[in-house]
Write a protein that binds this DNA or RNA. Sequence first.
DNA 1: CTACCTGCAAAGAATTTGCGGCTCT
DNA 2: AGAGCCGCAAATTCTTTGCAGGTAG
Lengths: 130, 130
Amino acid sequence: MGARQTTQRSLILDYLRGQKTHPTAKQVHDGVKVQLPGVSLSTVYRTLGWLRDQGEALELNGADGRSHYDGDVSDHGHFTCVRCQKIWDIELELPDLDRWEFEQKTGFKIHGRQFDLYGVCSSCGEKEDE
Amino acid sequence: MGARQTTQRSLILDYLRGQKTHPTAKQVHDGVKVQLPGVSLSTVYRTLGWLRDQGEALELNGADGRSHYDGDVSDHGHFTCVRCQKIWDIELELPDLDRWEFEQKTGFKIHGRQFDLYGVCSSCGEKEDE
DNA sequence: CTACCTGCAAAGAATTTGCGGCTCT
DNA sequence: AGAGCCGCAAATTCTTTGCAGGTAG
């Protein structure tokens, strides 16, 4: 029943973990194609979804309407650049959330959270003009 | 140059402001069709995008991969139900963010932020089975 | 009047899925 | 051998866009 170890999977995971900003499926595909030209986009989608289900990656809902993937599943925040659409990790004191109190008060059960800032990143800010 | 007041626009804004969970374009379309059967989905998309550009609505990037629209543009958090995909408003102490310090340290310019929790909402929790 | 808006239909883009064949284990 | 995977192509969805005609101001 076990998951199988294939060239495609290890390359995709390696690529994802090597990225500072969090790529879309298409960007992962382009990146992996360098080493494995024949890999298909649907394999990339399937592998990324599988990593997400395994808890080995986070699927982020980008402001550009596409999914971005993050190989770091620890509790951290993101900054989305509204110009280049890149998503950066940020070091921020995330709010101390009392899960128990929240769940008692609302009846909602918390699985996870995300904290996001939007704006212009430093490299896009430099190219400023008008 | 002025923006024009049309039946479509006022109904769409009214509908949006009347919703507790934040609907997708399609849901807004279905809701508005009750009073204005002939309205087209592209008008709904155009109007929602225009409201977002005017700062009168927020476009939220749903975990379902679709855009959801929120008529309340104040700084507040959201809870996304992973079962029904509804997005609820939550009352939470949002972290005190020192914009100036952050922008100095990172070179990033902040436009806005979003805080999201993911989990199961109370009505989906009740229908629990297996 | 006329710049702006609308509905329709078609185009685009992101993601998923069915299938026959290949491959780890 | 056989459960899993893969690549390919087609199907789904969501969203945007071009155009011809209608309407608010």
